[in-house]
Design a protein around this nucleic acid. Structure first.
Length: 358
DNA sequence: AAAACGTGGCG
DNA sequence: TCGCCAAGTTT
């Protein structure tokens, strides 16, 4: 009984706050599961401001799940270019095909069935189930971790197995099952707009008196984490071979590595960035051009930062009589913009217009 | 089950 | 410049 009372004050407060303060976002105020799914995938580890234009692009290019299922994976990746975590795009596309081909185009309607979609985990399944069908599944995302850890003073690390369990259980207890959609939207919006990571609005917060972190002056101590990412350094030397016809060779990344599914140029990875002379002694390079090959241009990019890697990259543009295209794809320089590139290479395009210099 | 997967913004 | 973080999932 006591627990029920506690649940209801929490849910009531945040829903009331939500009604007054919610942002008008395009995936809200509608219950099309396809649109909701799309928005949730885009917003994984991604802020609204960064994902918004991609959402508009996708609902325009792929107005229905059938359109997405019909598309080529390369086209989907091209549309995803720049947003990062590209497995999201590949899984989104694969799942669209699965829904259309295996489920007759009917979007799954239970938490368990929704979670069978690739790229949909506990959070996303709960979000879709509640937003589209008002099913009573509590969402736990970064916002929820922050709000709950602060309000209830929970020190369990949010990146631990125990933490995930503890917060999921608390979130489920707090959920008002009859207002699942509104409650879930409310707690996340409250986390992102009021109970912010830095400079939270504690002064005018409706939960001020009941918030453990605020009343104990420990706002900055919640939530807690135990792990920190390990960073590896990598050195990429790209060689852009260009023939007389202004063709070059590109390669699709398919290994179990970063940027899977995106394209790149001929890559030499080493423990450092070699000079061009050092490069000429490289066995792989020797097969591809002669000693008298001249550099058209050499570009060194500044450090490119990924979540677990620091990339140092340089590009050599060289003219060759004949392209070695055994494992790659020969394309016109003018067609490069049709392919999906990692941000790193897109930055190279920003500083170097290949068409103009070759 | 720990580690990897992108990118951009902010202090 | 650097570290942290963002509507997480996968292996």
């Amino acid at each position: 009984m006591k627990e029920t009372e506690q649940n209801s004050w929490f849910s009531k407060e945040i829903i009331a706050w939500y009604k007054k303060n919610k942002r008008d976002l395009p995936w809200r105020n509608q219950t099309n599961p396809y649109f909701i799914w799309l928005s949730e995938i885009i917003l994984q580890q991604t802020q609204v401001a960064q994902g918004l234009s991609y959402y508009y692009k996708f609902i325009t290019h792929y107005p229905t799940i059938f359109d997405l299922a019909k598309a080529k994976e390369d086209a989907v990746l091209k549309d995803w270019q720049g947003l990062g975590y590209y497995s999201r795009a590949r899984n989104l596309h694969a799942s669209a095909k699965y829904v259309v081909n295996e489920l007759g185009g009917v979007f799954p309607q239970s938490f368990e069935e929704i979670k069978k979609l690739k790229g949909v985990g506990d959070y996303t399944a709960a979000a879709i189930a509640s937003f589209a069908y008002n099913l009573p599944h509590a969402v736990v995302d970064g916002n929820v971790y922050r709000v709950l850890s602060r309000v209830f003073g929970i020190e369990t690390p949010i990146d631990s197995t125990l933490g995930k369990k503890v917060f999921q259980e608390l979130a489920t207890t707090l959920l008002n099952p009859k207002l699942a959609a509104q409650h879930n939207q409310a707690i996340m919006e409250f986390g992102s707009q009021q109970c912010k990571v830095v400079h939270p609005g504690c002064q005018n917060c409706v939960l001020q008196n009941k918030c453990f972190a605020f009343t104990n002056n420990k706002i900055d101590l919640f939530p807690t984490k135990e792990k920190k990412a390990k960073i590896t350094q990598r050195f990429f030397t790209y060689i852009i071979f260009v023939d007389e016809e202004k063709n070059t060779v590109i390669y699709k990344r398919d290994k179990n590595d970063i940027w899977q599914g995106l394209y790149e140029f001929f890559l030499i990875e080493d423990k450092h960035l070699p000079t061009f002379d050092e490069l000429l002694n490289n066995k792989v390079v020797k097969q591809n051009f002669k000693r008298n090959t001249s550099i058209i241009k050499h570009v060194v990019l500044k450090k490119h930062i990924l979540s677990h890697q620091h990339l140092y990259a340089q590009f050599f543009i060289v003219k060759v009589e004949k392209l070695n295209s055994k494992t790659g794809l020969v394309v016109k320089l003018s067609q490069l913009s049709n392919y999906a590139w990692p941000r790193l290479i897109d930055k190279f395009f920003d500083v170097c217009s290949l068409q103009n210099i070759c």
